[in-house]
Design a protein around this nucleic acid. Structure first.
Length: 416
RNA sequence: GGAUCUUUGGCAGAGUUGGUCGAAUGCACCGGUCUUGAAAACCGGCGAGGGUCACACCUCCCAGGGUUCGAAUCCCUGAGGGUCCA
């Protein structure tokens, strides 16, 4: 949720920034008006309520003094009707406002580059040089089938398209990577947390997946529960409605979960292989910080994810997302793209975002700054998407005969 | 599963003939006096959210609903905890 007070006070500045992200200025004006109307309704309701309270107190006095209360009662009864009306008005306006305000994305930072889509993303740097192959490197699905690591047909049999089954070294690699990543993150000061894979609506509203992106979520029939699309949701919402002592910040967490996504808007994209699955494994980083320290923590998260790739000797690059490619809740995002020689391109393997106070405002996560309660900053990032890491390992570690070597650092995790 | 009791501020714990209760008291905590420093003692402050320049004011005594001019206090439903019976 954006800061409505800020929108009201500095409409021109805020709307200009949001227009960079394609938000219609008319919509923002509407939000501003609705916000003012809501405040008005609140003041109205509260003053009626105050009058009611005062009269009720008088009642006590009258009774004790044995005075006649019929006139006062008439007044109070009339006021009651007004209160009911005022409350209804307030409720409606609140609903109206929330409906549109909740669908407004976060304000992008000033240094986020302009752009429609990923074409305008800005490369920040490269780590490791892709190696030259003496043969034409294959794509991962081919290697996966050839080595018997991944079974696409039986995944479809069990659950449908975009599901797959991992076997043998493919399955072991999954497990090894998860452990390796979690251990690495723990060493960097991130506390390991194991969370539910099913969450309620409030949690998803807190992190911004709802109400706007319900189509992308798997919902449990008959219940207001959803499968998580990322561990970011439960990890961030651990602190929903809490006021955290300043000394406890920053909170740095890492967690492994499966992630479940309908991929509603992705028809036809990445249909081969395991780049885009309905269920995939991911190790996530989530941090909760004071506003002034969030950028330092952000850098640490990017480094942590990048270091894992470096340890796996996978070439990658860092990319600063442009306004058009930025997610709903992010103020700015750095993607890490790993080199895939089979596809001869870099593909996203991690996305690290600073949402600043956008999620904190929705989820009411605050901290005690002296005497005042202030919103925290929340950050999230993958470190890393496990399936895509396997893809990267397959393509980068392939040999001419189609076999695949195992990265040195993973061998201990695979009983080798 | 049945009966009964219970659910209050960081903790403990008053508050059930409904009104002056957002709530006594103790502990904890913060500030001060005293002290070389600390402890003790004494003085002062001290629930949360919204709102305001600051007040005022609104909301919150497990959750939700109801009765009433007015509810922490009464009624209903649900959840957690205790005890007894199965």
């Amino acid at each position: 949720m954006i800061d409505l007070k800020l929108l009201q006070k500095e409409f021109d500045t805020v709307s200009k920034k949001l227009m960079r992200k394609g938000v219609d200025e008319k919509l923002l004006e509407k939000v501003k008006v609705k916000f003012e109307e809501l405040k008005e309704a609140k003041v109205n309701f509260e003053s009626l309520q105050a009058a009611q309270n005062a009269m009720s107190k008088e009642f006590g006095v009258y009774k004790r003094e044995g005075k006649d209360i019929s006139e006062l009662k008439a007044k109070v009864d009339e006021n009651k009707i007004h209160i009911a009306d005022a409350l209804e008005v307030q409720r409606l306006r609140q609903e109206e406002l929330e409906k549109i305000a909740m669908a407004i994305p976060n304000i992008p930072d000033d240094d986020v580059p302009d752009g429609e889509d990923e074409e305008s993303n800005v490369e920040l740097g490269r780590v490791l040089t892709p190696k030259e192959f003496s043969f034409t490197p294959k794509e991962h699905w081919e290697l996966a089938e050839q080595n018997g690591w991944i079974d696409f047909e039986r995944g479809v049999k069990l659950a449908g398209s975009r599901f797959s089954v991992a076997y043998d070294m493919g399955a072991k690699l999954e497990r090894a990577l998860i452990n390796f990543m979690l251990n690495y993150n723990a060493k960097k000061g991130y506390t390991e947390v194991s969370v539910p894979h099913i969450v309620n609506r409030k949690a998803l509203e807190g992190t911004g997946q709802l109400p706007k992106f319900e189509d992308d979520l798997y919902k449990i029939e008959g219940q207001e529960l959803f499968l998580i699309p990322t561990a970011e949701v439960p990890l961030t919402n651990l602190f929903q409605d809490e006021i955290i002592p300043a000394d406890n910040l920053p909170i740095k967490m890492t967690g492994y979960t499966s992630c479940y996504r309908k991929e509603a808007g992705a028809a036809g994209r990445d249909t081969r292989g395991i780049i885009r699955q309905h269920q995939f494994h991911k190790v996530e980083l989530v941090c909760i910080t004071k506003p002034e320290e969030s950028e330092a923590v952000f850098d640490d998260m990017v480094n942590t994810a990048s270091e894992i790739l470096t340890a796996l000797e996978l070439p990658h690059r860092l990319v600063n997302l442009c306004t058009g490619d930025l997610g709903f809740g992010a103020a700015h995002t750095t993607d890490i793209e790993v080199w895939l020689p089979g596809q001869n391109t870099y593909r996203e393997i991690s996305s690290i975002s600073n949402t600043r106070d956008f999620q904190a405002r929705r989820a009411k996560i605050r901290y005690k700054n002296g005497k005042k309660n202030e919103l925290v900053n929340t950050l999230n990032g993958s470190s890393l998407a496990v399936g895509r890491t396997i893809v990267a390992i397959m393509e980068n570690y392939q040999n001419e005969d189609g076999s695949i070597s195992i990265p040195e650092v993973l061998k201990p995790y695979m009983g080798m």
